[in-house]
Design a protein around this nucleic acid. Structure first.
Length: 355
DNA sequence: AAGCCGGGGTC
DNA sequence: GACCCAGGCTT
Protein backbone atom coordinates (compact mmCIF):
# COMPACT_ATOMS: atom_id res chain seq x y z
CA UNK A 1 0.00 0.00 0.00
CA UNK A 2 1.26 3.41 -0.92
CA UNK A 3 2.16 5.60 2.01
CA UNK A 4 2.61 9.33 2.35
CA UNK A 5 6.33 8.75 2.81
CA UNK A 6 6.48 7.04 -0.58
CA UNK A 7 4.77 10.00 -2.20
CA UNK A 8 7.30 12.37 -0.68
CA UNK A 9 10.21 10.13 -1.68
CA UNK A 10 8.88 9.87 -5.22
CA UNK A 11 8.36 13.59 -5.64
CA UNK A 12 11.60 14.74 -4.05
CA UNK A 13 13.82 12.12 -5.66
CA UNK A 14 12.33 12.86 -9.05
CA UNK A 15 12.78 16.61 -8.69
CA UNK A 16 16.36 16.25 -7.45
CA UNK A 17 17.18 13.99 -10.39
CA UNK A 18 15.64 16.49 -12.78
CA UNK A 19 17.64 19.41 -11.38
CA UNK A 20 20.83 17.43 -11.84
CA UNK A 21 19.99 16.34 -15.36
CA UNK A 22 19.94 19.88 -16.74
CA UNK A 23 18.61 18.49 -20.01
CA UNK A 24 17.37 21.16 -22.43
CA UNK A 25 18.25 19.51 -25.71
CA UNK A 26 14.83 19.84 -27.38
CA UNK A 27 13.55 23.21 -28.61
CA UNK A 28 10.19 23.05 -26.83
CA UNK A 29 11.70 22.30 -23.42
CA UNK A 30 11.58 25.37 -21.23
CA UNK A 31 9.37 27.11 -23.79
CA UNK A 32 6.94 29.56 -22.20
CA UNK A 33 4.95 30.71 -25.21
CA UNK A 34 1.55 29.00 -25.10
CA UNK A 35 1.17 28.89 -28.88
CA UNK A 36 4.51 27.15 -29.37
CA UNK A 37 3.85 24.76 -26.48
CA UNK A 38 0.43 23.88 -27.92
CA UNK A 39 1.98 23.35 -31.35
CA UNK A 40 4.65 21.03 -29.96
CA UNK A 41 2.13 19.04 -27.92
CA UNK A 42 -0.16 18.46 -30.90
CA UNK A 43 2.77 17.37 -33.04
CA UNK A 44 4.09 15.06 -30.32
CA UNK A 45 0.82 13.20 -29.67
CA UNK A 46 1.65 9.52 -30.25
CA UNK A 47 4.83 10.68 -31.94
CA UNK A 48 8.44 10.39 -30.86
CA UNK A 49 10.39 13.56 -30.26
CA UNK A 50 12.90 12.64 -32.96
CA UNK A 51 10.12 12.21 -35.50
CA UNK A 52 8.32 15.43 -34.59
CA UNK A 53 11.36 17.68 -34.30
CA UNK A 54 11.65 18.73 -37.95
CA UNK A 55 7.91 19.36 -38.14
CA UNK A 56 8.01 21.58 -35.06
CA UNK A 57 10.83 23.62 -36.59
CA UNK A 58 9.01 23.89 -39.92
CA UNK A 59 5.74 24.99 -38.33
CA UNK A 60 7.24 27.54 -35.94
CA UNK A 61 9.34 28.99 -38.75
CA UNK A 62 6.47 29.14 -41.24
CA UNK A 63 3.85 30.27 -38.72
CA UNK A 64 5.58 32.29 -35.96
CA UNK A 65 2.28 33.12 -34.25
CA UNK A 66 -1.21 31.70 -34.05
CA UNK A 67 -2.71 34.29 -36.39
CA UNK A 68 -0.37 33.36 -39.21
CA UNK A 69 -1.33 29.71 -38.80
CA UNK A 70 -5.01 30.62 -38.68
CA UNK A 71 -4.67 32.60 -41.89
CA UNK A 72 -2.92 29.86 -43.84
CA UNK A 73 -4.80 27.91 -46.53
CA UNK A 74 -5.80 24.37 -45.54
CA UNK A 75 -3.83 22.79 -48.36
CA UNK A 76 -0.62 24.56 -47.38
CA UNK A 77 -0.89 23.40 -43.77
CA UNK A 78 -1.70 19.82 -44.70
CA UNK A 79 1.24 19.85 -47.09
CA UNK A 80 3.49 20.88 -44.19
CA UNK A 81 2.01 18.11 -42.01
CA UNK A 82 2.45 15.52 -44.79
CA UNK A 83 4.18 12.39 -43.55
CA UNK A 84 3.53 12.93 -39.84
CA UNK A 85 0.40 10.79 -39.72
CA UNK A 86 -2.81 11.05 -37.67
CA UNK A 87 -4.09 13.77 -39.96
CA UNK A 88 -7.05 14.53 -37.68
CA UNK A 89 -4.50 16.35 -35.56
CA UNK A 90 -3.78 18.70 -38.43
CA UNK A 91 -7.44 19.43 -39.11
CA UNK A 92 -8.15 20.05 -35.41
CA UNK A 93 -5.04 22.19 -35.07
CA UNK A 94 -6.20 24.46 -37.86
CA UNK A 95 -9.71 24.71 -36.44
CA UNK A 96 -8.31 25.62 -33.01
CA UNK A 97 -5.91 28.21 -34.43
CA UNK A 98 -8.81 29.90 -36.19
CA UNK A 99 -11.05 29.59 -33.15
CA UNK A 100 -8.47 31.28 -30.91
CA UNK A 101 -7.80 33.98 -33.49
CA UNK A 102 -11.47 34.76 -33.84
CA UNK A 103 -12.90 34.13 -30.38
CA UNK A 104 -9.95 35.07 -28.16
CA UNK A 105 -8.48 37.69 -30.51
CA UNK A 106 -5.42 35.50 -30.92
CA UNK A 107 -4.70 35.31 -27.21
CA UNK A 108 -4.25 31.72 -26.00
CA UNK A 109 -6.71 30.80 -23.21
CA UNK A 110 -5.05 30.51 -19.82
CA UNK A 111 -7.39 28.34 -17.76
CA UNK A 112 -7.38 24.54 -17.74
CA UNK A 113 -11.07 24.22 -18.65
CA UNK A 114 -10.81 26.61 -21.58
CA UNK A 115 -7.71 24.83 -22.86
CA UNK A 116 -9.32 21.41 -22.46
CA UNK A 117 -12.31 22.57 -24.50
CA UNK A 118 -10.13 23.21 -27.57
CA UNK A 119 -10.42 20.76 -30.46
CA UNK A 120 -7.63 18.20 -30.47
CA UNK A 121 -6.78 18.95 -26.84
CA UNK A 122 -7.49 16.19 -24.33
CA UNK A 123 -6.53 15.76 -20.68
CA UNK A 124 -2.85 15.20 -21.38
CA UNK A 125 -2.35 18.15 -23.72
CA UNK A 126 -4.43 20.48 -21.54
CA UNK A 127 -2.31 19.62 -18.50
CA UNK A 128 0.89 20.09 -20.48
CA UNK A 129 -0.11 23.54 -21.76
CA UNK A 130 -1.56 24.62 -18.42
CA UNK A 131 1.60 23.70 -16.54
CA UNK A 132 4.29 24.65 -19.06
CA UNK A 133 2.76 27.94 -20.17
CA UNK A 134 0.83 29.07 -17.10
CA UNK A 135 2.36 27.23 -14.10
CA UNK A 136 -0.99 25.67 -13.28
CA UNK A 137 -0.76 22.52 -11.10
CA UNK A 138 -2.21 19.94 -13.49
CA UNK A 139 -0.37 16.63 -13.76
CA UNK A 140 0.28 15.19 -17.21
CA UNK A 141 -0.60 11.55 -17.79
CA UNK A 142 0.95 10.13 -20.93
CA UNK A 143 2.59 6.84 -21.85
CA UNK A 144 5.68 7.76 -19.84
CA UNK A 145 3.66 8.51 -16.72
CA UNK A 146 1.66 5.26 -16.97
CA UNK A 147 4.93 3.37 -17.12
CA UNK A 148 6.68 5.15 -14.25
CA UNK A 149 3.69 5.06 -11.90
CA UNK A 150 2.56 1.52 -12.67
CA UNK A 151 6.07 0.27 -11.95
CA UNK A 152 6.91 2.35 -8.89
CA UNK A 153 3.64 1.46 -7.19
CA UNK A 154 3.24 -1.97 -8.85
CA UNK A 155 -0.24 -1.17 -10.11
CA UNK A 156 -1.67 -3.98 -12.22
CA UNK A 157 -4.86 -2.22 -13.25
CA UNK A 158 -4.77 -2.01 -17.07
CA UNK A 159 -3.77 1.49 -18.11
CA UNK A 160 -6.15 1.38 -21.08
CA UNK A 161 -9.21 0.63 -18.95
CA UNK A 162 -11.61 3.24 -17.64
CA UNK A 163 -10.70 2.39 -14.08
CA UNK A 164 -7.01 2.55 -14.90
CA UNK A 165 -7.29 5.99 -16.42
CA UNK A 166 -9.10 7.21 -13.34
CA UNK A 167 -6.60 5.67 -10.90
CA UNK A 168 -3.50 6.93 -12.68
CA UNK A 169 -4.89 10.41 -13.24
CA UNK A 170 -5.77 10.66 -9.56
CA UNK A 171 -2.39 9.32 -8.43
CA UNK A 172 -0.48 11.62 -10.77
CA UNK A 173 -2.38 14.61 -9.42
CA UNK A 174 -1.55 13.54 -5.83
CA UNK A 175 2.13 13.33 -6.66
CA UNK A 176 2.64 16.60 -8.52
CA UNK A 177 4.91 19.20 -6.98
CA UNK A 178 2.41 22.04 -6.83
CA UNK A 179 5.20 24.57 -6.34
CA UNK A 180 6.85 23.60 -9.65
CA UNK A 181 4.26 21.93 -11.87
CA UNK A 182 6.15 22.57 -15.10
CA UNK A 183 9.42 21.13 -13.81
CA UNK A 184 7.63 18.18 -12.22
CA UNK A 185 5.76 17.29 -15.40
CA UNK A 186 8.92 17.61 -17.44
CA UNK A 187 10.79 15.47 -14.92
CA UNK A 188 8.42 12.51 -14.89
CA UNK A 189 8.20 12.40 -18.67
CA UNK A 190 11.98 12.68 -19.01
CA UNK A 191 12.42 9.82 -16.56
CA UNK A 192 10.01 7.67 -18.52
CA UNK A 193 11.65 8.53 -21.82
CA UNK A 194 15.27 8.03 -20.80
CA UNK A 195 15.39 5.68 -17.78
CA UNK A 196 12.06 3.94 -17.17
CA UNK A 197 11.84 2.79 -20.79
CA UNK A 198 9.38 0.19 -22.13
CA UNK A 199 11.98 -2.52 -22.72
CA UNK A 200 15.17 -2.94 -20.72
CA UNK A 201 14.72 0.02 -18.35
CA UNK A 202 17.93 1.48 -16.88
CA UNK A 203 17.04 0.76 -13.26
CA UNK A 204 20.70 1.03 -12.25
CA UNK A 205 20.51 4.75 -13.03
CA UNK A 206 17.00 5.33 -11.69
CA UNK A 207 16.66 7.73 -8.76
CA UNK A 208 13.52 5.87 -7.66
CA UNK A 209 14.79 2.29 -7.86
CA UNK A 210 15.45 1.84 -4.17
CA UNK A 211 11.73 2.10 -3.43
CA UNK A 212 10.35 0.99 -6.78
CA UNK A 213 7.94 -1.91 -6.20
CA UNK A 214 8.40 -3.35 -9.69
CA UNK A 215 12.19 -3.19 -9.44
CA UNK A 216 12.25 -4.84 -6.04
CA UNK A 217 9.90 -7.61 -7.15
CA UNK A 218 11.34 -8.03 -10.65
CA UNK A 219 8.11 -6.94 -12.30
CA UNK A 220 9.33 -4.19 -14.61
CA UNK A 221 8.89 -6.43 -17.63
CA UNK A 222 5.23 -7.06 -16.75
CA UNK A 223 4.20 -3.45 -16.15
CA UNK A 224 2.30 -1.50 -17.25
CA UNK A 225 -0.56 -3.88 -18.05
CA UNK A 226 -2.59 -3.31 -21.20
CA UNK A 227 -5.74 -5.29 -21.84
CA UNK A 228 -6.60 -4.40 -25.40
CA UNK A 229 -4.67 -6.04 -28.15
CA UNK A 230 -4.89 -4.50 -31.56
CA UNK A 231 -6.08 -6.34 -34.61
CA UNK A 232 -4.50 -5.63 -37.98
CA UNK A 233 -6.80 -5.55 -40.96
CA UNK A 234 -5.42 -6.36 -44.40
CA UNK A 235 -6.69 -4.21 -47.28
CA UNK A 236 -6.09 -4.40 -51.00
CA UNK A 237 -5.78 -1.05 -52.79
CA UNK A 238 -5.57 -0.86 -56.56
CA UNK A 239 -4.44 2.58 -57.67
CA UNK A 240 -4.98 3.61 -61.26
CA UNK A 241 -2.69 6.49 -62.20
CA UNK A 242 -4.54 8.10 -65.07
CA UNK A 243 -2.23 10.22 -67.19
CA UNK A 244 -2.90 12.49 -70.10
CA UNK A 245 0.19 14.25 -71.36
CA UNK A 246 1.82 15.88 -68.33
CA UNK A 247 -1.35 15.78 -66.28
CA UNK A 248 -2.51 13.23 -63.77
CA UNK A 249 -5.89 12.67 -62.14
CA UNK A 250 -6.15 12.94 -58.36
CA UNK A 251 -8.87 13.33 -55.78
CA UNK A 252 -9.12 14.31 -52.11
CA UNK A 253 -10.28 11.62 -49.69
CA UNK A 254 -13.29 13.12 -48.00
CA UNK A 255 -14.70 9.95 -46.47
CA UNK A 256 -14.09 9.16 -42.82
CA UNK A 257 -11.25 6.79 -42.19
CA UNK A 258 -7.63 6.51 -43.04
CA UNK A 259 -5.98 9.48 -44.76
CA UNK A 260 -9.03 11.71 -44.64
CA UNK A 261 -8.35 15.02 -46.43
CA UNK A 262 -5.23 13.69 -48.15
CA UNK A 263 -5.06 13.10 -51.90
CA UNK A 264 -4.79 9.95 -53.97
CA UNK A 265 -5.09 8.54 -57.47
CA UNK A 266 -8.16 6.69 -58.66
CA UNK A 267 -8.58 3.96 -56.05
CA UNK A 268 -10.36 0.68 -56.49
CA UNK A 269 -10.37 -1.28 -53.27
CA UNK A 270 -11.01 -5.01 -53.57
CA UNK A 271 -11.69 -7.58 -50.83
CA UNK A 272 -8.86 -9.76 -52.14
CA UNK A 273 -5.85 -9.23 -54.34
CA UNK A 274 -7.07 -8.30 -57.81
CA UNK A 275 -5.72 -9.02 -61.27
CA UNK A 276 -5.13 -6.47 -64.02
CA UNK A 277 -8.13 -7.84 -65.89
CA UNK A 278 -10.38 -7.36 -62.87
CA UNK A 279 -9.29 -3.76 -62.49
CA UNK A 280 -9.81 -3.11 -66.19
CA UNK A 281 -13.31 -4.46 -65.79
CA UNK A 282 -13.94 -2.07 -62.91
CA UNK A 283 -12.68 0.82 -65.00
CA UNK A 284 -15.16 -0.08 -67.73
CA UNK A 285 -17.96 0.61 -65.23
CA UNK A 286 -16.66 4.16 -64.85
CA UNK A 287 -16.12 5.18 -68.44
CA UNK A 288 -16.94 4.15 -71.96
CA UNK A 289 -13.49 5.27 -73.07
CA UNK A 290 -11.08 2.48 -73.90
CA UNK A 291 -8.53 2.35 -71.10
CA UNK A 292 -5.48 0.10 -71.24
CA UNK A 293 -3.72 -0.56 -67.96
CA UNK A 294 -0.09 -1.26 -67.35
CA UNK A 295 1.13 -2.57 -63.99
CA UNK A 296 3.87 -0.26 -62.73
CA UNK A 297 4.55 -1.23 -59.15
CA UNK A 298 3.54 -2.58 -55.75
CA UNK A 299 3.66 -1.14 -52.27
CA UNK A 300 3.39 -2.83 -48.91
CA UNK A 301 2.54 -0.51 -46.06
CA UNK A 302 2.36 -1.63 -42.47
CA UNK A 303 0.43 0.72 -40.20
CA UNK A 304 -0.53 0.27 -36.57
CA UNK A 305 -3.96 -1.13 -37.36
CA UNK A 306 -3.90 -1.91 -41.06
CA UNK A 307 -1.73 -3.71 -43.57
CA UNK A 308 -2.25 -2.04 -46.91
CA UNK A 309 -1.18 -3.89 -50.03
CA UNK A 310 -1.22 -1.54 -52.99
CA UNK A 311 -0.91 -2.30 -56.68
CA UNK A 312 -0.30 0.56 -59.07
CA UNK A 313 -1.51 0.69 -62.65
CA UNK A 314 -0.87 3.37 -65.21
CA UNK A 315 -3.48 4.39 -67.77
CA UNK A 316 -2.30 6.58 -70.62
CA UNK A 317 -5.26 8.56 -71.92
CA UNK A 318 -5.62 10.66 -75.03
CA UNK A 319 -8.01 13.04 -73.29
CA UNK A 320 -8.71 14.18 -69.72
CA UNK A 321 -11.81 12.12 -69.15
CA UNK A 322 -14.10 12.90 -66.28
CA UNK A 323 -14.79 10.18 -63.75
CA UNK A 324 -18.45 10.21 -62.76
CA UNK A 325 -19.45 10.40 -59.08
CA UNK A 326 -16.06 11.64 -58.00
CA UNK A 327 -14.73 15.07 -57.20
CA UNK A 328 -11.35 14.39 -58.69
CA UNK A 329 -9.48 16.75 -60.96
CA UNK A 330 -6.58 16.85 -63.35
CA UNK A 331 -3.35 18.44 -62.26
CA UNK A 332 0.02 18.95 -63.92
CA UNK A 333 2.63 16.62 -62.49
CA UNK A 334 4.83 19.58 -61.59
CA UNK A 335 1.98 20.84 -59.38
CA UNK A 336 1.55 17.64 -57.38
CA UNK A 337 3.84 19.04 -54.69
CA UNK A 338 1.12 21.48 -53.66
CA UNK A 339 -1.07 18.65 -52.41
CA UNK A 340 -0.67 16.41 -49.38
CA UNK A 341 -0.41 12.66 -50.00
CA UNK A 342 0.09 9.68 -47.69
CA UNK A 343 3.76 9.16 -46.98
CA UNK A 344 4.25 6.08 -49.11
CA UNK A 345 2.48 7.78 -51.98
CA UNK A 346 5.04 10.55 -51.84
CA UNK A 347 7.80 7.99 -52.33
CA UNK A 348 5.89 6.38 -55.15
CA UNK A 349 5.36 9.69 -56.92
CA UNK A 350 9.03 10.57 -56.60
CA UNK A 351 10.00 7.23 -58.12
CA UNK A 352 7.46 7.01 -60.93
CA UNK A 353 6.12 10.43 -61.89
CA UNK A 354 8.74 12.70 -63.31
CA UNK A 355 6.60 14.44 -65.89
C1' DA B 1 -16.46 1.00 -23.54
C1' DA B 2 -14.52 0.00 -27.79
C1' DG B 3 -12.77 1.17 -32.25
C1' DC B 4 -10.20 4.07 -35.16
C1' DC B 5 -6.46 7.07 -36.65
C1' DG B 6 0.08 6.98 -39.46
C1' DG B 7 4.49 6.46 -39.58
C1' DG B 8 8.67 5.16 -37.58
C1' DG B 9 11.94 3.42 -33.89
C1' DT B 10 13.41 -0.39 -31.00
C1' DC B 11 14.31 -4.80 -29.33
C1' DG C 1 7.07 -9.53 -35.53
C1' DA C 2 5.48 -7.18 -31.39
C1' DC C 3 5.33 -3.19 -28.95
C1' DC C 4 5.33 1.62 -28.33
C1' DC C 5 5.41 6.61 -29.06
C1' DA C 6 4.72 13.94 -25.02
C1' DG C 7 -3.43 10.92 -27.16
C1' DG C 8 -7.89 12.27 -28.82
C1' DC C 9 -12.19 11.67 -31.25
C1' DT C 10 -16.18 9.07 -32.71
C1' DT C 11 -19.72 5.78 -32.19
Amino acid sequence: MATKAQYVFFRESLMRWHREQNDRSLPWKGERNAYRIWLSEIILQQTRAAQGLDYYLKFTRTYPDIRSLAAAPDEEVFRLWQGLGYYNRCRNMLATARFISDTYQGRFPDTYDEILALKGVGPYTAAAIASFAFDLPHAVVDGNVYRVLSRFFAIETPVDSTEGKRIFASLAQELIDADSPAAYNQAIMDLGATVCTPAAPLCMFCPLAERCAAYRQNLTGLLPVKEKKLSVQTRHFNYVVMRSGDSVWIRQRKEKGIWQDLHEFLLIETPEAATLKQIEKEIKQLTTARVALRHIGSLRQRLTHQLILSEFYEAQLSAQLTVPDTEGFWVDISELQRFAFPKTMVSFIAAHLHG
